[in-house]
Amino acid sequence: MTLNGMIDGAPSTAPAQTTPTVALFVTCLVDLFRPSVGFAAIKLLEDAGCKVVVPASQTCCGQPAYNSGDREDTKAIARHVIETFEAYDYVVAPSGSCGSTLKKHYPELFANDPAWHERAVRFSQKVHELVSFLTDVRGVTEVDAALPATVTYHDSCSGLRELGIREQPRQLLRTVEGLTLTELPEADVCCGFGGTFCVKYPDVSNAIVGKKTKHIASTGADMLLAGDLGCLMNIDGKLKRENNGIEVRHVAEVLAGMTDKPPIGGKL
């Protein structure tokens, strides 16, 4: 099965009857810092009836180059990603930021290159962020997981504003047994990560994440979740510096019921 669910080049939103093959775009941060998120993604995708493959030659989506103005290197990286992933039914990333780069920005990157543009557009139609793929494409309405904790959720910017991810993670979190979801004030405001921004302008970034951690503390939650590891590492780093013991995890870990490992930045 190679074109399951594809009608006129666009993926169907109805749950597929057969087993689609999903290529996992691990993302460089998950690969390097938090492999647990990759394994959680695999479990969630398999539970949703997908066959998961992990293309070995993947590195990164190219955002660091793209957002630094290095368009040529970005294009080279993008061409490699497209070549590596375009044959699969779906491409899924546990990140709204990387997912959006693949889905929204690659076509734009090749705006002046008709052949690659067409290829990038076709590729982009297969790309999804993990949680919204589960709910919107696979029709998942509940997960098989338990966590007796109060959690709060931060909406990462690219996922929220470029991919429209807001309700999907909340909807699935509410089905985690024992979990209470409490809303984070100003959940839709940036955490100050911004990729290289946080090291180029550390003082400004710090002021922004400082507001975020105040809001997080105000919820009284035991755990902060989000769908992007960059934001999570930034927020966790600030919470730890403030000696705030709240646990920080990627939402996929909780949805997959894989919270046995220490949280991000936690003691081993």
């Binding site: 946080c198 550390p202 003082d203 710090n206 590492m233 780093g237 730890k240 510096r241």
Partner: peptide, 10 residues
């Protein structure tokens, strides 16, 4: 740039 204000998760 990172660790001036934040810890870096290992």
């Amino acid at each position: 740039g990172w660790t001036k204000w934040r810890d870096l998760p290992a």
